Amino acid sequence: MGSHSDALGWLNSTSEFLDGETATLRRGHHSTTVTVVRGSNKPKLMSQDGQAYVELEHQEILIRPSQYSFGGIKHEPLPGDRIVIGSETFAAVPYISGEGCWRYTDQFKSHYRIHVQLTND
């Protein structure tokens, strides 16, 4: 089991190094700079004036629990938290299943998997 744990840790750190983006995490008037990895997208097919297009309605963002802090105090994600990546702003939203807006990515609790929706507010 030790080698499996080591391999998973390596994979997570490699993903963050290769795919990580700098983002700003906001809750109310608090903010902090973090590294995030974009997770899966859930496309929504739309039609407007006879033209079909794909809109990315929901997606998941991965972040290390140790980075999810404001003023040096660690927190868990809450619905309404904002994650700003470049010019895009995402809001943490609950899953339709009612399980909250986040869950751990794996049994080792290496990252939060936060369910978000593009808001650009």
Rank of each mutant, 00 (worst) to 15 (best):
1 M>W: 09
2 G>C: 07
3 S>R: 04
5 S>Q: 04
5 S>L: 03
7 A>E: 10
9 G>L: 05
11 L>T: 07
11 L>H: 09
12 N>L: 06
13 S>D: 14
16 E>W: 02
16 E>R: 10
18 L>M: 07
19 D>F: 14
21 E>T: 01
22 T>V: 14
22 T>Y: 08
22 T>A: 11
24 T>L: 04
25 L>C: 03
28 G>S: 01
29 H>W: 14
31 S>V: 06
32 T>G: 15
35 T>W: 11
35 T>E: 10
37 V>A: 10
37 V>C: 11
39 G>H: 07
41 N>S: 13
41 N>F: 15
43 P>L: 07
44 K>C: 11
45 L>A: 12
46 M>D: 03
47 S>G: 10
47 S>K: 08
50 G>F: 13
50 G>R: 01
53 Y>D: 04
53 Y>H: 12
54 V>M: 05
55 E>Q: 15
56 L>D: 12
56 L>T: 15
59 Q>T: 06
62 L>K: 09
63 I>R: 04
66 S>N: 09
67 Q>S: 13
69 S>C: 11
70 F>N: 05
74 K>T: 12
74 K>I: 13
76 E>A: 14
78 L>Q: 10
78 L>C: 06
81 D>I: 03
82 R>F: 02
83 I>G: 00
84 V>F: 08
84 V>E: 13
86 G>Q: 00
88 E>G: 02
89 T>W: 05
90 F>W: 08
90 F>Y: 12
93 V>G: 03
98 G>A: 08
101 C>L: 10
101 C>Q: 01
102 W>K: 01
103 R>Q: 14
103 R>H: 13
104 Y>A: 13
104 Y>H: 13
106 D>P: 06
106 D>T: 00
107 Q>S: 15
109 K>C: 15
110 S>L: 12
112 Y>E: 06
113 R>A: 14
113 R>G: 10
115 H>T: 03
115 H>M: 01
116 V>E: 01
119 T>C: 12
120 N>T: 09
